[in-house]
């Protein structure tokens, strides 16, 4: 198992280097001048310009610049935002819990509904239930997030007035950020109203962001389950006299989960991409909205840092999915 872990972790290094290379070259690939992009100043006098060229190390050969960049990365230095002059890492760390909270809830929603829906659809295949689950999930999967989010806002916030339109919590509540997770912080504050407010702010973005993963998980679970239910070992389990529930929940599901876990890992990338749209629409102060604003403001250090950090998170999630894959699939774990 340890060797397996090490092999998987070893694969992360080249992927990470690839991303640094991409992010590094970003500043040279964007139209316009690298010095102006990095400093955010335009039409500066030649003396200042040449000083900045030297300061940014742009007068060095490219490979030296790249290794300088890597060296700074290893020290956790991702540069400063042009707009706020805050370190990129610090901005990221303050905003990331919001995105994490939203993504976590969206994934939870996708799992809580998607897994049982997929299992039921497989067990009742070719019935009304199966067709409904598959039809609804295909619709959900095909719906663009921004449109779906607007529909949700129109119905639940504007027409029915059940949920707030945007933000993470009512402005009346001023909570000290302890964990950065609004649900937790509001609970810690001891104010039930704050918790309720945080929860009601979370509902619509969670649905908007969770819909696509939900649809994918439901469909994948269904097809994996259908395949597994035909397997000989399921027949063996039934011939042993096990109850129907035990055959499905232990013998079939355990095997069906193997491909589903892979898909769940891939959906984390979709979540982060979807967070950009969802956070923008719901004014959710997370890294998605942060990145979009940075692009609008041409805040290149933030764009670079944001991309690198988001990509690193996706790599790490996929690594943990690989490891989890080994845990639930003994054939992977033991093979060399």
């Amino acid at each position: 198992m340890f060797g397996f872990l090490l092999r998987r972790a070893g694969l992360v290094v080249p992927t990470f280097l690839g991303i640094t290379l991409l992010v590094f070259s970003l500043i040279h690939m964007i139209p316009g001048n690298a010095v102006e992009a990095l400093s955010g100043e335009h039409g500066m006098d030649p003396a200042r310009y040449s000083r900045l060229v030297h300061e940014f190390g742009l007068d060095q050969p490219l490979y030296v610049q790249y290794f300088d960049y890597l060296g700074k990365l290893l020290k956790g230095d991702l540069g400063f935002s042009i707009v706020t002059h805050e370190p990129v890492v610090r901005e990221f760390l303050t905003l990331f819990p919001a995105t994490l909270e939203l993504s976590f809830c969206a994934m939870l929603l996708a799992l809580i509904i998607g897994l049982p829906a997929g299992i039921l659809a497989a067990l009742k295949r070719n019935t009304f239930l199966d067709y409904s689950v598959m039809g609804v999930s295909l619709t959900g999967y095909s719906m663009p997030i921004f449109w779906w989010a607007l529909l949700l806002i129109l119905l639940f916030s504007v027409t029915l007035g059940w949920t707030p339109v945007s933000g993470r919590i009512d402005i009346l509540f001023d909570l000290p950020p302890v964990t950065g997770f609004m649900l937790v912080d509001s609970l810690l504050s001891g104010e039930l109203g704050a918790f309720r407010s945080a929860l009601s702010h979370l509902i619509l973005p969670t649905i908007a962001l969770g819909t696509i993963p939900l649809a994918v998980i439901a469909r994948m679970t269904r097809s994996a389950m259908l395949e597994v239910l035909r397997e000989d070992y399921v027949r063996t389990a039934r011939a042993k006299g096990l109850s129907r529930l035990r055959v499905i929940a232990i013998h079939a599901l355990r095997n069906a989960l193997i491909p589903v876990v892979t898909v769940i890992g891939l959906q984390v990338g979709t979540l982060l991409a979807g967070a950009i749209l969802t956070e923008t629409i719901f004014s959710w102060p997370g890294i998605g909205k942060w990145l979009v604003e940075a692009i609008h403001r041409r805040d290149y250090p933030v764009v670079q840092g944001g991309i690198l950090l988001s990509a690193s998170i996706i790599i790490l999630v996929n690594l943990s999915v690989d490891v989890l894959y080994g845990v639930i699939n003994p054939r992977i774990r033991r093979s060399s």
Binding site: E231, Y233, H251, R254, N255, I328
Partner: peptide, 8 residues
């Protein structure tokens, strides 16, 4: 080979 559950 296929009658035993590979996960257990």
């Amino acid at each position: 080979m296929t009658s035993l559950n590979p996960c257990f």
